[in-house]
Design a protein around this nucleic acid. Structure first.
Length: 969
DNA sequence: ACCGCCGGGTGCC
DNA sequence: ACCGCCGGGTGCC
């Protein structure tokens, strides 16, 4: 009798769940259980298929979960099951239980699952209509080293793992490479992608994800800054993603059911929509502004956020001073403001005047509600909790935005005619609406989570882009005295905090995790890519209706990075790691084209990305001012020329000897040093001092090596831009091999890694080992800056630069200049004449701390009268993101091997935000190695443009050719 | 009759 | 479950 009674208990339990909250509790608890199990989900990477076997799902009649033909099911251990501690539950995608695995098999599986020896997965191919049992295909995946153990365990219990090819996924599609190849031969289908193709596919995954049909949308009136065309498109897209109830990718309606074509799962209820997405525009295209516009434009039901308007225009919002009237709100609002964020921002936050008036853009019902709730809360601020949907919801077609929202598409650009709105708003289909009942209209607040470093930027941008007469409640949730009142926070329009604060609060009665947000925005969302990080968990724990990720670089390393983003967006069913792994990650990493195709579809559906180069209707998103590049030939003085020729002849004879011997590559370090010396001669004689270590005759090969490496250290430490012959780009994280060749560490590591036996240097075929690679700081600290002005002397190139700088200053003293060199010591030399001629300047090189860099850039970018006019910039300093738009003249003091490096540098000022025409001057010494370098640069560019097909060997010989050409041999 | 066989009751873990 | 298994009813051909 006992078991029977217990079964009643179990049944009653589920029944109670069904009664109380069908869609929440029962499904939720199970899916939570699965989610919890999935948290331990091992990485699918590197797992191999051990084999598969047919099993049986029993007890179907006790559960409500149904499955379709070909549907993937989850196999979840149930150690607490009172009948059998080995129990394995079978559940569908939504976490609804389907049944159990038959006892004996479950026992075998349990011993494997509990010891984490394999990940066990199920697919149901037939018998889905059965009432009592159904067959299930069970496959075992895990680390290679566990394969025999797993096979043994199963064999011991009488289960044989089949290893032949078989359908692994839904739809009987092969998603492992063997299967794919086997099929390929039969059906002429695709074969697995190569690693190369895969990498390219990732790189391009996010490219060009502009949904062309989305039209544009004007921002609400409260947005003071006019949006650019592409920003209106983004706004339109974002509003549509928040308002329209399009099914998530791979879901389709089949009769009464919603069906997922990848997992073959179907459900009666509409899958939870992703209300939000990834805005992955390039930096500088205005993600922040677009987001601010979204907040103000798309409140509930597609209407603008009800904002109060200040009667008086008195508040000097743009100023840095705190308005005197701020006192009332100050106490509550600015509690955390001062924790290190700019005064200007804090000023704006508390600058709202008490006298308020509802802006009339809102339909009457909303206005009324605002009026009512106004007094119900403290101090005249709006509170949203009492807000309720108005039943009648009068449709005001005068409200273009709203009409557009009704029509399910945004307004045409510029078509402001009311009749357009009326016409283009056909009877809205139920489909295109938010299910209003499911909407919590009481949610008001947008929570923005950002890295600390850009926190102040948000505040600045709110201030800059929100009309100064609009009272937007923005609260900075930061600092030890931050206001943790839920009531207070959820009455704000916007709450901004950092990832660190969020994760510090998490699990600690965090108010942020109890509030029902209207919208959560993750700025630089790619930083939450590690699902195990506390930060990520804290982000996933937030309750919100709409979710956005802003990121210029959504994928940093691999597909894996994407999961966290999809999980945050709650993209069903991939927010559960198992489905993501099974349907996307594993197929993709194994090179399955369908998997990649699915991934692309997935990403495409939720992402908008435009790059600086993107075009809309054939026109670039943003028009940059002109850029002119000119070369200025520099003639060496007689004494300089003599010194140069001396060095050249010496070097030439050495190198021609190497060429004759065919040992150029073996003596590469020496060759580079010779070239370096010549290049330094072209700039300034004093550059040579430290790099002229004499090679001399070395006693032992080891000693020789030592010296070669030392020589290379000097070459690289001087800031020279050298090329890695693996990636053919400028070396990044340079390392020197024992044979004295320079590569990027990742590049050479890959070369060594892919070699089965002994790895050989790509340049000279010497044996190389990882532990023999010599590393050094990217740019070594300059030796004491003893370029004392007494011994200081000029050079032709210095003269040429100074002439230009003086001329520019004479013509227009507001023009700022970048002076760029590969040689940081050259920059030091240049400081003397700059000072002499009264130029204010700053310097940016690789040795500076991140903090100092930002400081310098800020100083330089300032438009203040006493801000620096010149920046001395080391060619490789800073990343690509550097913004130096204050400058409009660029002087490239010396040519780089890699023209792309120069381009990158120029792009730091010729980019979004540049208002002036940019003039670039390259100084090239006539009849010198520099001229030859320019020639080679051009050839390289041609090569790159003609074909990517040049192999490594081609490049190696061309490197020798380069050197011969440089020395005119 | 301490068996075989029949047929009804019953059924996940 | 159109099964297997259990256990009661039954019993030559």
């Amino acid at each position: 009798m006992f078991p029977r009674r217990w079964r009643f208990g179990w049944d009653r339990h589920t029944e109670v769940d069904l009664f109380t909250d069908r869609h929440e509790t029962s499904a939720q608890t199970l899916s939570q259980a699965i989610r919890a199990a999935a948290a331990e989900e091992p990485d699918a990477d590197g797992s191999v298929l051990f084999g598969h076997l047919q099993g049986t799902v029993v007890g179907l009649r006790y559960y409500t979960g149904v499955v379709n033909q070909g549907e993937m099911v989850g196999l979840v251990r149930q150690p607490q099951n009172p009948y059998d501690s080995n129990a394995v539950m079978v559940a569908n995608i939504y976490g609804n239980q389907v049944g159990h695995i038959k006892r004996e098999l479950a026992a075998a599986m349990a011993s494997i699952m509990d010891r984490n020896l394999a990940k066990v997965e199920g697919v149901v191919h037939s018998g889905t209509k059965n009432s009592f049992t159904m067959p299930v295909m069970i496959s075992f995946w895990g680390k290679e080293e566990n394969k025999t153990t797993v096979t043994e365990i199963m064999t011991r219990r009488g289960y044989k793992l089949n290893t032949g090819s078989r359908p692994t996924g839904a739809n009987q599609k092969p998603n492992n490479s063997q299967g794919a190849r086997a099929l390929a031969s039969k059906k002429g289908l695709t074969i697995a992608l190569t690693a190369e193709e895969l990498k390219n596919a990732f790189d391009n995954l996010f490219e060009g994800l502009m949904e062309s049909k989305d039209g544009e949308k004007e921002a609400a009136k409260a947005v003071g800054t006019p949006l650019l065309l592409h920003q209106k498109q983004a706004l339109s897209w974002m509003c549509a993603r928040e308002n329209k109830s399009t099914l998530p990718p791979f879901w389709e309606k089949r009769g009464e059911l919603y069906y997922n074509s990848l997992t073959c799962f179907s459900a009666k209820e509409i899958p939870e929509r992703v209300r939000g997405g990834i805005l992955a525009d390039d930096m500088g295209l205005g993600k922040t502004l677009t987001t601010i516009a979204l907040i103000l434009t798309n409140f509930h039901k597609g209407k603008p956020l009800p904002v109060e308007k200040c009667e008086e225009q008195a508040s000097p919002v743009k100023g840095k001073t705190k308005p005197p009237t701020a006192s009332r709100l100050e106490g509550s609002i600015s509690a955390g403001d001062r924790a290190g964020v700019s005064d200007a921002a804090a000023g704006s936050l508390s600058s709202h005047l008490p006298q308020v008036e509802v802006i009339s853009v809102d339909p009457p019902d909303v206005a009324e509600i605002v009026g009512k709730t106004d007094k119900s809360t403290s101090k005249g601020k709006m509170k949203a909790t009492k807000r309720k949907p108005s039943k009648e919801a009068p449709v005001l077609l005068e409200d273009l935005d709203f009409a557009a929202a009704l029509g399910g598409s945004a307004s045409d650009s510029g078509s402001k005619k009311k009749k357009t709105a009326t016409k283009s708003a056909p009877t809205p289909s139920v489909e295109s609406f938010i299910t209003e009942s499911a909407d919590d209209l009481s949610a008001r607040t947008t929570l923005i989570i950002s890295p600390l470093s850009v926190l102040s930027n948000w505040l600045d941008q709110f201030e800059q882009h929100v009309r100064s007469n609009v009272k937007l409640n923005v609260y900075l949730y930061y600092g030890s005295d931050r206001n943790r009142s839920k009531r207070f926070l959820s009455s704000q329009d916007v709450v901004i905090t950092t990832y660190n604060v969020l994760s510090a609060d998490f699990g600690n009665k965090s108010p942020l995790h109890e509030i029902n947000w209207l919208r959560v925005v993750l700025d630089e969302g790619h930083i939450i890519r590690n699902p195990n990080a506390q930060m990520s968990k804290a982000v996933l724990g937030l309750k919100t209706q709409r979710r956005w990720i802003l990121s210029g670089t959504p994928i940093q390393n691999s597909v894996k990075d994407l999961w966290m983003l999809l999980a945050f967006l709650r993209l069903k069913p991939f927010d559960v790691r198992e489905w993501w792994n099974r349907v996307i990650q594993r197929p993709v990493t194994q090179g399955d084209r369908d998997g990649l195709q699915n991934l692309q579809t997935l990403v495409r559906c939720i992402t908008l990305r435009r790059t600086k180069g993107s075009k809309v209707n054939g026109r670039p998103l943003v028009c940059l001012p002109d850029k002119t590049v000119c070369v200025e030939q520099v003639e060496l003085s007689q004494s300089e020329r003599e010194e140069y020729e001396l060095a050249r002849n010496e070097g030439r004879s050495t190198i021609s000897r190497y060429v004759a011997e065919g040992t150029v590559l073996r003596n590469y370090a020496d060759v580079l040093a010779i070239l370096m010396r010549l290049r330094q001669h072209c700039c300034h004689p004093d550059l040579l001092a430290k790099t002229s270590a004499d090679l001399g005759a070395a006693a032992t090969p080891a000693e020789l090596r030592e010296r070669l490496i030392e020589k290379l250290r000097l070459v690289l430490a001087s800031g020279s831009d050298e090329e890695c012959s693996v990636c053919l780009d400028s070396v990044r994280l340079p390392v020197i091999t024992h044979c004295a060749h320079v590569y990027c560490r990742p590049c050479i590591a890959q070369v060594i890694g892919t070699e089965q036996n002994v790895a050989r240097c790509p340049l000279c075929r010497s044996e190389i080992k990882t532990n023999e690679l010599v590393e050094f700081p990217q740019e070594e600290m300059e030796e004491e800056k003893s370029t004392n002005s007494e011994k200081w002397r000029t050079s032709s190139k210095v003269q040429a630069l100074m002439g230009n700088l003086l001329r520019v200053r004479c013509e227009d003293s507001s023009i700022k200049c970048l002076v760029v060199s590969q040689f940081t010591r050259f920059l030091s030399i240049l400081e003397t004449p700059l000072r002499e001629h009264g130029f204010t300047f700053v310097r940016l090189d690789g040795t500076m701390s991140q903090k100092r860099r930002t400081q310098v850039i800020q100083e330089f970018q300032s438009s203040a009268a006493d801000s620096p006019a010149v920046m001395l910039l080391s060619l490789k300093a800073g990343g690509v993101g550097l913004n130096l738009t204050a400058a409009s003249r660029v002087f490239l003091m010396d040519p780089a091997w890699n023209p792309a490096t120069e381009e990158q540098c120029i792009d730091r000022c010729h980019r979004l935000g540049q208002t002036r025409n940019v003039v670039v001057t390259k100084f090239i010494v006539k009849d010198s190695v520099e001229e030859s370098m320019v020639k080679i640069q051009r050839q390289k560019q041609d090569l790159v443009e003609k074909a990517f097909g040049s192999t490594n060997t081609d490049r190696k010989t061309s490197r020798i050719d380069d050197i011969k050409a440089l020395m005119e041999l």
